[in-house]
Design a protein around this nucleic acid. Structure first.
Length: 273
DNA sequence: AATCATCCCTGATTGC
DNA sequence: TGCAATCAGGGATGAT
């Protein structure tokens, strides 16, 4: 599932191909995947626009167009944005095809949870779902003290707090589990029970895990692919995610699987306290 | 304000 | 082997 490192990889691989190109045609195979803004529909806002730059906020991909329009895309679990240099027949899960001056972008999603919205750029930050997001974990301005303050009022377990995009933007199930493992913190701990020392470790672990994920071009546990259809390489570096019942790579203890915040959670009962 | 349940979907996995 | 039930999961929404 695309989390911060995967969305960042999609952004980078897509930007190479589509920056500066104009959107010549739009085909909506499943119109529910897109939404416009006020009384203007998606096509009206997007058709003919030129792609200026690609940005990212948390797990949202932002495609800035001219005329002050921005596309906000979210892949949820199985969404993909693929670039094809030559015209290609859309597969059965492709919901939107953007035909560019050169090549096509296909937005597809097996589970139909992913969405693309067209919105005036100036409203991106204030009026969209991006407005309530927590800080960017890899932003130098995101400090351990900031993390401490944001966790201070949270009584839920730390796993649930890390998945809450209002606390921090971009962590999903994979990188939350991996961060907690690296920090040596049990996912069941109440978020507001962490010591300053533990929060420092967690802060460092989050940044290290996300950066390593980006460097490996993401985790392709199942569905994820970048804009070129390539898998990421981070799966082999995973310490806990998807490894419940297997031995801990550090101490050999059997990794435990449980359910927290409605998500499957894997951790090492010996390494994580 | 924080927390929790529900819903959206379909391919893969599990159960009988 | 075949079919049905269950599982997986991010975020919007509404209830508490």
């Amino acid at each position: 599932m695309p989390e911060l490192p995967e969305v960042e990889t999609i952004r980078r691989t897509l930007a190479v191909h589509i920056t500066d190109l104009r959107i010549k045609d739009i085909s909506l195979k499943w119109p529910s995947a897109v939404s416009g803004w006020r009384d203007k529909d998606f096509k009206e806002l997007v058709l003919g626009r030129q792609i200026l730059a690609l940005d990212r906020r948390g797990k949202y991909l932002l495609i800035h167009l001219d005329e002050e329009i921005t596309l906000i895309a979210h892949m949820r679990m199985t969404g993909r944005l693929n670039y094809y240099p030559e015209p290609k027949e859309p597969d059965k899960h492709t919901h939107v095809v953007l035909t560019l001056e050169r090549g096509e972008v296909h937005f597809s999603d097996v589970r139909k949870f992913g969405r693309i919205q067209a919105i005036p750029t100036s409203l991106c930050i204030q009026e969209s779902s991006l407005s309530k997001l927590g800080p960017e974990p890899l932003d130098p301005q995101f400090t351990a003290n900031m993390l401490r303050d944001r966790l201070a009022k949270k009584k839920v377990n730390i796993k649930g707090a890390l998945l809450d995009q209002h606390v921090l933007a971009g962590l999903g199930n994979i990188y939350a589990d991996e961060s907690l493992f690296r920090a040596g913190i049990s996912p069941q701990r109440p978020a507001n029970s962490l010591t300053d020392e533990e929060i420092k470790h967690l802060h460092r672990a989050i940044q290290a895990v996300l950066q390593a994920g980006i460097d490996a071009r993401g985790t392709s546990f199942r569905d994820y692919r970048d804009a070129n259809g390539e898998k990421g390489q981070f799966e082999q570096a995973l310490q806990v995610y998807g490894r419940g019942g297997h031995p801990c790579r550090i101490c050999g203890e059997t990794l435990e699987r449980l359910r927290l915040a409605g998500r499957t959670t894997v951790y090492c009962p010996k390494c994580q306290k």
